[in-house]
């Protein structure tokens, strides 16, 4: 199987990688770059645990092939906080305890970050539409919605 040389920006760092065709972005992040905050939950684009931002838009990283990434920019949960300073969204998740086991949280944060960027003042319905692809079995979701709404008042995505 031929490999592809790709250059991409991950959380602001330039990366140059040799990747096989069948590797997905999820595994590029987790296995090649050690960015394990992005979680593997289904490898079928259904659970959202692996959500990252690709050129600013949320995608399931299990649904993107590594060779497609040449010249693209990826932001993962590790790229949200800058110099230890949490984003207002992360602060709101912490403040409201919108987290239990925490496995869905990185994906939730990425989807919600993208929502707040494209719609700084979402309604509850907007939040539900934006996060319906992020499954959570623990929290019952209401606190997650509330946290996004709080963040929309305290400073949005960044």
């Amino acid at each position: 199987m031929a490999h592809h040389m790709i250059s991409l920006l991950v959380n602001g760092q330039k990366e140059k990688l040799l990747v096989p065709s069948n590797l997905t972005l999820l595994h590029v992040l987790r296995d090649m770059l050690g960015l394990t905050g992005t979680k593997n939950g289904c490898e079928a684009g259904e659970c959202g645990a692996c959500t990252v931002l690709l050129d600013g838009e949320p995608v399931n990283s299990c649904m993107v092939l590594a060779p497609e990434l040449d010249g693209r920019e990826v932001i993962t949960v590790e790229g949200l906080a800058k110099d230890g300073q949490l984003t207002p969204l992360q602060e709101a998740f912490a403040e409201l305890s919108a987290v239990q086991c925490g496995y869905c949280t990185p994906g939730m944060l990425m989807s919600a970050t993208a929502l707040l960027r494209r719609k700084p003042h979402p309604t509850q319905q907007d939040v539900q539409e934006a996060l319906v692809g992020n499954l959570c079995r623990c929290t019952g979701y209401q606190r997650i919605i509330d946290a996004v709404m709080v963040a929309s008042r305290t400073g949005g995505a960044e």
Partner: peptide, 20 residues
């Protein structure tokens, strides 16, 4: 506040598949 909250909102919490 939860003891694990900051780790879990920053992607730092380690689950078994995350161990290298």
């Amino acid at each position: 506040a939860r003891t694990d909250i900051i780790d879990k909102v920053t992607g730092c919490a380690v689950f078994v598949d995350d161990i290298q």
